[in-house]
């Protein structure tokens, strides 16, 4: 199976939210009462029942006016995913397609993934005591269909295809766009399976980390302390046994009244 990615060309996104709706529909995510948060953006962030949200941001256009920036926020499907690294139940896993799947039945609601994802993606549903997130429409891509969001996008901002091909197209597009345009996603966390074409600098986008990575304390916890702990426990048990059969236990002297008792023998 060749590795596939979703390419998200934000220069073509005009904020229609067709992807957001298509995602809810395909994944049968229930609607919830919304409220006005002072922005056209709705809901304010990813939610357990909203795996995709179009972020609406107003920035200065440099001529005294404002312009819209739209960003489709969803799971980036990291190749080196912090969430998979920490998930104790195996609910989060790498799929054959290279994306990060989630097996809801296995999730124990520990929220470890919530704390470690560099993009703040997994969201906890306190009613179900489970976490949920975009699974890149695994049931669709397993059957050679594109994800629902890609299918719905009317402007061609979303594409799904072979990684090498998509990246080539991305770099070509960035050249055409010129200016601050960049490709975002292929250079960190082992390469993401959702890759952006950003018309503006990374730092302009709210909530988009410039240097995302698996947090260092997570690496120290999972990659270092895990093997070291087993080694240390094994060492303590083996050491005790060796002590017992070589130096021997510290036995009280038969004659308890002897003052200058000998050390352990």
């Amino acid at each position: 199976m060749t590795e596939k990615i979703k390419l998200c060309d934000l220069s073509k996104c005009y904020g229609c939210r067709a992807c957001q709706v298509a995602c809810k529909q395909w994944n049968q995510l229930p609607a919830k009462q919304t409220y006005n948060s002072g922005s056209y953006q709705n809901p304010p962030d990813l939610q357990p029942n909203n795996w995709v949200v179009i972020k609406y941001q107003e920035i200065s256009d440099g001529n005294g006016g404002v312009k819209w920036l739209f960003r489709k926020d969803a799971c980036m499907h990291c190749t080196d995913a912090a969430c998979v690294k920490v998930c104790p139940s195996g609910a989060l896993y790498y799929t054959k397609q290279g994306t990060v799947g989630i097996d809801n039945g296995k999730c124990i609601g520990c929220k470890e993934c919530v704390a470690v994802c560099p993009f703040g993606v997994p969201k906890y549903d306190s009613k179900a005591d489970k976490v949920s997130k975009c699974d890149m429409c695994l049931s669709r891509i397993e059957n050679d269909m594109e994800p629902a969001c890609v299918k719905a996008c009317p402007t061609g901002a979303l594409q799904f295809g072979d990684k090498a091909e998509m990246l080539k197209a991305a770099y070509k597009r960035v050249e055409v766009l010129g200016g601050d345009a960049t490709v975002y996603g292929d250079k960190f966390v082992g390469g993401t399976h959702m890759v952006y074409i950003l018309p503006e600098k990374v730092s302009v986008y709210d909530g988009l980390p410039e240097y995302p990575r698996v947090p260092l304390n997570v690496i120290a916890w999972k990659d270092w302390l895990k093997p070291l702990s087993l080694l240390a426990v094994g060492g303590a048990i083996a050491g005790s046994f060796l002590h017992y059969i070589t130096h021997g236990p510290k036995t009280p002297d038969e004659d308890g009244n002897q003052v200058n008792a000998k050390g352990g023998e």
Partner: peptide
């Protein structure tokens, strides 16, 4: 995140 790290560190110290 740091709490998870510290919890694992404590495990590493206490268990042996």
């Amino acid at each position: 995140r740091t709490m998870y790290f510290l919890h694992a560190l404590g495990f590493f110290v206490i268990t042996p």
